[in-house]
Design a binder for these strands. Structure first.
Lengths: 119, 119
DNA sequence: CGTTTAGTGAAGTTCTAACTTCACTGAGGA
DNA sequence: TCCTCAGTGAAGTTAGAACTTCACTAAACG
């Protein structure tokens, strides 16, 4: 499936957040997390055209959140949870930054504390 | 800071993915994760107008990823890492779904295995 | 065969997110 | 006091995302 024309998204994180930023695509992921589904089935679940599903699928595949294979005339779509990794990394990084700041704050507090211990 | 008019975003996850779906807002978060900053400073870092920062800030605040207070004439913005929690929950849920599926696959495999043990 | 069904490509519509500029308010110096 | 600087509100522009419909291909099946 060729990607629909869109603005250049530099990083994987960019692709991921953009892909998941759309609620219909998240609904698609929700459905796929429960097992594979065809384009028609997804179209029925989301109540949109099959064409729309094709376009959403392209975005999800580009973000590596989904894969699909066509056998006969039906295309089966699958969720690819490994694609979530960069997202998890992004969160971890920012959580770590925060912890780091807290640690530095602790250090500061201890430093002040030990200073006060001195006459 | 009053929110800029936008489409209804039902859930927190919705707000979060939308907020972080924009690369400039992520750059803002990146900067703020490193410590508080004023609107002017953020505008300088991102190379956009202060008005634009105000708008981005409103989105980040609505998603509870940032907080800001105005003292005198300068507004100081802070990153709020606790706001990431619903995002982490979303990821955990989908990762769990996957593990669940793997577990069920394991069960299936064991079931088949024990079946083959029988004559 | 012919007909239904699954999906795709192309093209057009609509809506809105992300900006801008301009005009303004109000805080803080010189 | 006057001037500058930080930020905000209003309004307008623009690019592109998310859809649609229509026309088509090709598989499945009576």
């Amino acid at each position: 499936m060729q990607p629909v024309r869109e603005v250049a998204r530099s990083s994987k994180v960019d692709l991921l957040f953009h892909a998941l930023g759309d609620s219909n695509r998240r609904r698609m992921v929700d459905r796929l997390a429960d097992g594979p589904a065809s384009v028609s089935e997804l179209a029925a679940v989301l109540a949109v055209s099959k064409t729309a599903i094709g376009q959403h699928l392209a975005v999800l595949e580009e973000a590596q959140l989904a894969r699909s294979t066509k056998v006969g005339r039906v295309r089966t779509c699958q969720f690819d949870p490994a694609g979530l990794a960069p997202l998890q990394d992004w969160i971890d990084y920012h959580r770590q930054e925060w912890n780091g700041r807290l640690d530095r704050l602790d250090d500061l507090v201890s430093a002040i504390g030990s200073k006060e211990d001195c006459p």
